[in-house]
Measured scan of single mutants.
Amino acid sequence: TELRLDINGREIKVDGADKETLKELLKLAEKNNDEKAIRIIRHLLER
């Protein structure tokens, strides 16, 4: 399955993203107070 998050109005594919990319996405999600995106990205970073 493909995991996509809508961050800042942009749909971004997050599964398969490297750790650096995920960290950047996490910063974006935190800036937007997007709890769902934050939770998902943190979960991916823990893998």
Rank of each mutant, 00 (worst) to 15 (best):
T1C: 13
T1A: 09
E2Q: 09
L3C: 06
L3Q: 11
L3D: 13
L3Y: 08
R4E: 14
R4K: 11
R4A: 13
R4F: 14
R4T: 15
R4I: 15
R4Y: 13
R4L: 15
L5I: 13
L5D: 08
D6N: 15
I7R: 01
I7S: 02
N8Q: 04
G9A: 01
G9M: 02
G9V: 01
G9I: 02
R10Y: 13
R10S: 12
R10W: 13
E11L: 11
E11V: 12
E11Y: 08
E11F: 09
E11H: 07
I12K: 01
I12H: 13
K13R: 11
K13I: 14
D15Q: 06
G16S: 13
G16H: 10
G16F: 12
G16D: 08
G16Q: 11
A17T: 12
A17D: 12
A17W: 08
D18Q: 03
D18H: 03
K19A: 07
K19I: 12
K19E: 11
E20K: 09
E20S: 07
E20R: 09
E20Q: 09
E20V: 10
E20C: 06
T21W: 06
T21N: 07
T21G: 09
T21E: 07
T21M: 12
L22E: 00
L22F: 02
L22I: 04
L22Y: 01
K23G: 06
E24P: 01
E24A: 14
L25T: 02
L25W: 09
L25C: 03
L26S: 01
L26T: 00
L26H: 01
L26V: 02
L26Y: 08
L26R: 01
K27S: 07
K27G: 06
K27L: 11
K27N: 07
K27I: 10
K27W: 11
K27R: 11
L28D: 05
L28M: 10
A29T: 01
A29S: 04
A29L: 05
E30V: 13
E30S: 09
E30R: 14
E30N: 07
E30L: 14
K31G: 07
N32W: 15
D34E: 08
D34P: 00
D34W: 08
D34C: 04
D34A: 09
D34M: 04
D34Y: 05
E35V: 13
E35W: 14
E35L: 11
K36F: 12
K36L: 11
K36W: 10
A37M: 04
A37F: 04
A37C: 03
I38D: 01
I38R: 05
I38T: 07
I38C: 03
R39I: 09
R39M: 14
R39V: 09
R39N: 09
I40Q: 05
I40G: 02
I40E: 03
I40P: 00
I40C: 07
I41E: 00
I41Y: 03
R42L: 12
R42Y: 07
R42K: 10
R42C: 03
R42S: 06
H43N: 08
H43E: 09
H43V: 12
H43Q: 11
L44P: 00
L44F: 14
L44N: 03
L44T: 05
E46P: 03
R47W: 14
R47F: 13
R47Q: 13
R47M: 13
R47Y: 14
R47C: 04
